[in-house]
Design a protein around this nucleic acid. Structure first.
Length: 243
DNA sequence: AAAATTAGCAACCGCTCAGCA
DNA sequence: ATGCTGAGCGGTTGCTAATTT
């Protein structure tokens, strides 16, 4: 079971779980590089971290996904793509691995299979561009104050897997995006689920998303500004989160 | 009852990013 | 500006249990 480097791999034993749990309870989460040494486990830090996050953490919820959880996964996946950590963050007690596994085993066939069938039926190629806001670039024309071209916005409609109503552009052509990113008025009362603590504002949802996105390298699709053409926004999810 | 197939889940791997020197 | 290291994420693999033939 040991790897070439002498580090143990494969399934965790009960004893290893106890050692890891004891270590985390004593020293707290984090400093994963020290965990194997502190716990006395012959495991790599990645393995320890994963075991804790996906299995040993006390707040992890086990058992089948409820229908509302499934519904949320579907909607969030539509909005965020395969960003399992973000999706799992909206599902109290569920890990990204859980969500990912559930999607791959239950939902991907259901939806991807259907999509394939739809495409075959229509014999039309549809490219679904999933939004990945973490590739934001501060040099993007939008962030430099340039307005998005309306024609671009309109053309984006054709790239979406589901039609949606694009909020009307104001004179500067960016107001709705502006408010979306700044999390300003109009959304403050909206809510969504958050880690069992009840609710949080939808604006904070986006604040988190966008702040993370803008923080990360501050690269906002510089190499292909037209990516914004494909920015999709799920109004159904918006409604759901507002509900 | 046994073999083959499928489904579900745990764990690993490789990559990217942030922080720091 | 650059390189290094730790941390985190998503894709993929592999094992096991359940189901079907």
């Amino acid at each position: 079971m040991d790897g070439p480097s002498g580090v143990r791999k494969g399934a965790w034993t009960r004893e290893e779980d106890v050692l890891l749990r004891t270590c985390i309870e004593k020293y707290g989460e984090g400093k994963w590089h020290q965990v194997p040494f502190r716990s006395g486990l012959n495991r790599c830090r990645k393995s320890c971290r994963l075991r804790w996050l996906n299995y040993l953490r006390p707040d992890i919820k086990r058992g089948k996904f409820k229908t509302d959880e499934v519904d949320l996964i579907i909607r969030l996946h539509k909005l965020l793509g395969n960003r399992w950590a973000l999706i799992a963050g909206r599902l109290p007690g569920r890990t990204s691995n859980d969500v990912k596994n559930y999607w791959n085993t239950h939902l991907s066939k259901k939806f991807f299979g259907k999509a394939v069938k739809d495409v075959a039926d229509k014999t039309a190629k549809v490219t679904v561009i999933k939004p990945r806001p973490r590739t934001f670039n501060k040099n993007l024309s939008y962030l430099k104050g340039k307005a998005a071209k309306e024609s671009d916005v309109q053309s984006a409609d054709h790239t979406l897997s589901k039609p949606y109503s694009t909020p009307p552009l104001s004179e500067d052509g960016i107001s709705w995006l502006d408010s979306l990113f700044s999390g300003k008025e109009g959304h403050k009362e909206s809510t969504c689920f958050r880690n069992g603590s009840g609710k949080e504002s939808i604006s904070s949802f986006w604040d988190e998303e966008i702040s993370a996105a803008t923080k990360v390298g501050e690269t906002f699709v510089e190499e292909n500004e037209s990516d914004w053409n494909h920015f999709s926004f799920d109004m159904d999810l918006w409604d759901l989160l507002n509900a």
